[in-house]
Design a protein around this nucleic acid. Structure first.
Lengths: 201, 201
DNA sequence: ACAAATTTGGACCTGCAAGTCCAGAACCGG
DNA sequence: CCGGTTCTGGACTTGCAGGTCCAAATTTGT
């Protein structure tokens, strides 16, 4: 009953989500009409409401999930292998490169301010994303502690929270000012601090 | 010609802006209709378009400016007097207290994701706010350097950028997760680092 | 190949919220 | 008081975007 999607149907659904996501990234959530999605993905209104019976809200939710997953996927395999300082550097470089490339077109932007209010479930998606993100960083720190590269008395959770906050703020400031400086400063100074603490041990 | 506001008119205009700002903080930009503002401020449609001929967009811009100013005002006089470690602590406490109190109802949230796209001028307002904010922090750091409380070789601009990023990200995470932990961690760890550097000198 | 299911297209409906308009009240200067 | 201006109220218009509906095309299982 809850399952009734042909392979073709699944493909169409995916096409709609991906297209809508792209459109939203490009022009912002509240600027994107259902008709835009239709035009951009070559679909009709009937299809939209066939795959998303609850209309725009349901579609937005699917897009949110899609984008949230993408954010973490983009950081792989670096994010899951923070096992040496060069690896941390590689992850840091990937982040900078990513956000520099996408510039203002940030998936999070759409998810947060906007979608968060509309769909109650979107809030959960964002929270989940942040949690997974921070968890990955925490694991990285703990691993570095196990190898003695980071001092054992560092509170891994707290440090990861601060680092994640720096990243989010850096991206936010990239969005409003167009400069990558904040993200760079936050990343570099925080990581630098973790390395400095190691020498203390 | 550009000036034609009676004292009464000015009062009404201010009432509209303040009321709209409150409404938006409470329920989000895209949930607030012009009628809501009218009801909440005891005004009529005629008045709205009398004081804001360009309609909603112009009103939103005025609200954005109003909120941006408020953000910095809320941090005074602490923000302008970062001249000792207790003063830094007082500022830090004020920030935590502020954001803890207002919780999800963040003026920035409305300004950024939403208003930023709609009104082109809103972007400038946010940028200006961030710039003023960071400048104040930079001044604080420089002052601490002049008294020897912070090492002279610290790049004040860079450190301020990182701190501001941490704050913004902390607030963002407060909005999505409801927890103040990130903001606290970012603030405390970054300030702690500035103090630690002093001992190095 | 055939019936049942899904998938697709697009015309149509509907409600709502922004924006228009104007007439009358309140206010201001002399 | 009185002409001009600003302020206020609210009825009316309008466009548009989300959502409904159904009939035709396609696919699926057997």
């Amino acid at each position: 009953m809850t399952r009734a999607l042909t392979r073709k149907g699944e493909a169409t659904r995916a096409r709609i989500v991906a297209g809508a996501a792209a459109e939203i990234r490009e022009r912002g959530v509240d600027e994107v009409r259902l008709e835009d999605v239709m035009a951009h993905t070559g679909t009709s209104k009937g299809q939209l409401f066939h795959y998303f019976p609850d209309g725009k809200e349901e579609l937005l939710l699917a897009v949110a999930q899609h984008e949230a997953d993408q954010v973490l996927t983009d950081q792989e395999p670096m994010l899951s292998n923070l096992t040496s300082w060069p690896a941390w550097q590689a992850w840091r470089d990937r982040l900078i490169e990513r956000y520099l490339a996408q510039g203002v077109k940030c998936p999070l932007n759409g998810l947060l301010g906007q979608t968060g209010r509309r769909a109650p479930g979107a809030q959960a998606i964002v929270t989940g994303l942040m949690w997974r993100w921070q968890e990955a960083i925490t694991v990285g720190i703990r691993h570095m502690q196990s190898t003695g590269d980071i001092a054992g008395d560092v509170d891994a959770d707290r440090a990861a929270a601060a680092l994640l906050a720096g990243i989010q703020g850096g991206v936010l400031l990239l969005l409003s000012t167009g400069k990558i400086d904040h993200l760079e400063a936050a990343l570099d100074l925080t990581i630098e601090r973790l390395r400095a603490d190691a020498r203390t041990t």
